Simulated assay, not measured.
Amino acid sequence: MKKQEIGTFLLRVMLGITFLMHGLSKFQSGLDNISGWFQSIGIPGFMGYVVGTIELVGGIALILGLGTRIISALLIFIMAGAIVYVKFPAGFMGNGEGAGFELDLILMIIALHLVLNGSRFLSIDSKLPNHKKGQDSEIIAS
């Protein structure tokens, strides 16, 4: 087992936990409230439901290693939206009135790493019959 596989596994699980908690928070505070807030910043309200569901279900899927590349790609779009629509005006580190986009950017880069490299170690994806053995390492090598 390579150190890179363990490192990527840790990134996958921590990204999964982070988004699971953010999605859970959206559900606990009420998706109707999230939908209303999305509308107040110029995003269609239904996207609050979409984002909350992707974060909650996607977080669980990442922890389990199921659909890692697909979920990570969706999270990249969510983080890009968060940066552009919410965090960018506050700057990289924040402006005293709101948080900056440094954490969102880091989460987006971790998700990009998972899109590019996958994460086979302790993943359901690696156990699926249609998953080609060594597929992730071939992509890394190229």
Rank of each mutant, 00 (worst) to 15 (best):
A99S: 14
I124E: 05
I34H: 10
G118H: 01
N117H: 03
L75W: 07
K3I: 10
I71L: 06
I63S: 08
A99P: 11
Q4W: 08
L75F: 12
S35H: 03
A141R: 00
M21W: 06
L56P: 08
S35C: 02
A99D: 11
G81S: 04
I43L: 11
F27S: 00
V115K: 00
I76M: 15
A111T: 01
I70S: 12
M79V: 02
G65S: 00
L62H: 01
Y49W: 15
L31Q: 13
L31G: 10
K132Y: 06
F88L: 14
I140G: 11
E55H: 10
K26V: 08
H131S: 12
V13W: 13
G45F: 10
G59N: 11
N130H: 13
Y49Q: 10
Y49N: 12
A82R: 14
S35L: 00
L66G: 07
M93D: 03
P129G: 09
L107K: 03
G67P: 11
L105A: 07
V13I: 15
E55F: 08
S142D: 14
D125Y: 07
G52R: 07
F101P: 04
A141I: 01
L112Y: 01
G98Y: 07
K127W: 03
M14H: 03
G23F: 02
M93S: 15
Q135M: 12
K132E: 15
T53H: 10
M1R: 02
I83R: 15
L122D: 00
M93T: 13
E102F: 03
L64Y: 09
Q4L: 14
Y85F: 07
G59D: 12
F121K: 09
M93N: 12
I60Q: 01
G45W: 09
A73M: 10
S137R: 11
V84K: 15
Q28K: 13
I71M: 07
M79K: 11
G81C: 02
I139F: 06
G36L: 09
I109F: 08
L66A: 13
K3T: 11
L66T: 00
M108C: 02
G91C: 13
K2Q: 14
Q39L: 09
I63V: 15
I6N: 08
D136C: 00
E55S: 09
G36F: 06
L122C: 06
D125G: 08
M21T: 15
H22D: 06
I78D: 10
I54G: 04
I70E: 12
A80P: 03
T53G: 11
F101R: 06
I83C: 11
I110L: 00
G67R: 03
A73N: 05
G30P: 05
M47Q: 13
F88C: 02
F46R: 09
K133D: 04
Q28N: 12
L11W: 04
F121N: 05
Q28G: 07
F9Y: 12
E55V: 09
S72W: 10
S137P: 07
L103C: 00
H131P: 01
L74N: 03
L107I: 02
A111V: 01
R120V: 02
L122H: 03
A111W: 01
G30L: 04
L10G: 08
L75C: 04
S29G: 14
L31R: 14
M14S: 14
